[in-house]
């Protein structure tokens, strides 16, 4: 090992006590992967395989049963403002307005900034997601798409080194999702933050990420493969489908989800402790 990666996950495992005493249900184990600075990583896997659990462990909101997480060579323990989280259900504070929700985050990050600077900074991030007109509305008065935009603005406004997103667009309709995906690409390409995102949407993963981690089914789920998305940026939803690699990658992902994810599940897998996921590069 010559150089450390930005984020290193080593032998991560999560288990819960089983029904009978002494028995345990292993959700996933032997999770090993590295993420480089500035990478956009998507994770795909069937429901219940433990994606959210991994994300919560990275966020410091949940504890692993075994294994280690290093960021910048330092072990992660507990939540930190250096790891921003976008929750699936937006998690805005409903008694605060749009602007106040962002100010809340910005003030938490830079408590010594003067008030004007905090507000200016917050407004900047809200304008990036096109919400200048809704500063004084409460979350209940916003549509689902608008709420998720606020939540994205809140996460980016604190400029965390690592952004964790748990199915951020899962609850949105296809049209809104497309628009917000493009906004996300725009903000991300300016900030070049490292992103770890969970999704169920294969096309979304190809559009957004540099690499896609594939998880096999639980229990005893594994991070089985790491698929490189060999389509150059700037990607547009309408253009990438014409790229020769697009359907190769898409078919590989779909095949994994439908056929291979269940074969790889269970204890009888070839993944052993310390083994990195198989790298797949389908570039022509």
């Amino acid at each position: 090992m010559s150089k450390h990666s930005f984020l290193e996950i080593q032998g991560l495992k999560k288990s819960y006590p089983g029904q009978t005493k002494g028995e345990e249900t292993v959700i996933f184990e032997h999770a090993n992967f590295n993420i480089e600075k500035g990478e956009f990583i998507c994770v795909i896997g069937h429901s219940g395989c433990g994606k959210s659990t991994i994300l919560n462990i990275l966020a410091g909101l949940d504890e692993a049963s075994d294994g280690l997480v290093f960021m910048n060579g330092k072990e992660v323990s507990g939540p930190s403002l250096e790891r921003g989280v976008i929750f699936q259900n937006y998690s805005l504070l409903p008694w605060k307005t749009t602007l106040e929700n962002i100010v809340f985050a910005v003030r938490a990050k830079w408590p010594h900034w003067p008030k004007e600077k905090i507000i200016e900074h917050s407004k900047h991030y809200l304008s990036l997601v096109g919400l200048d007109h809704a500063l004084d509305r409460k979350p209940a008065q916003l549509s689902g798409g608008m709420r998720q935009r606020v939540s994205i603005a809140r996460a980016f406004s604190t400029q965390p080194e690592l952004l964790l997103m748990d199915e951020p667009f899962g609850a949105l309709d296809a049209l809104t999702r497309g628009v917000i995906q493009e906004e996300l690409i725009k903000i991300w390409s300016e900030s070049k933050q490292t992103v770890f995102m969970i999704t169920h949407d294969v096309d979304e993963a190809i559009l957004l990420s540099d690499r896609i981690l594939l998880m096999s089914n639980g229990p005893h789920a594994q991070i089985a493969e790491s698929v490189t998305v060999s389509i150059p940026r700037q990607r547009k939803r309408t253009d990438i489908i014409h790229h020769p690699d697009y359907y190769k990658i898409r078919n590989h992902l779909v095949d994994f989800l439908i056929n291979r994810s269940k074969d790889l599940s269970g204890v009888a897998t070839q993944v052993t402790a310390g083994q990195q996921p198989k790298t797949i590069n389908l570039a022509s």
Binding site: L61, G84, V85, F87, S91, L93, T158
Partner: peptide
């Protein structure tokens, strides 16, 4: 739980969490 998690990921101290998140939520 989500709001508590928001407080946690923003590294609020217990006092800050009590006044900025729990109190308005429970008010």
């Amino acid at each position: 739980k989500d709001w508590i998690n928001v407080a946690k990921t923003h590294q609020l101290s217990p006092i800050q969490t009590a006044f900025q998140v729990i109190l308005p939520a429970a008010a």
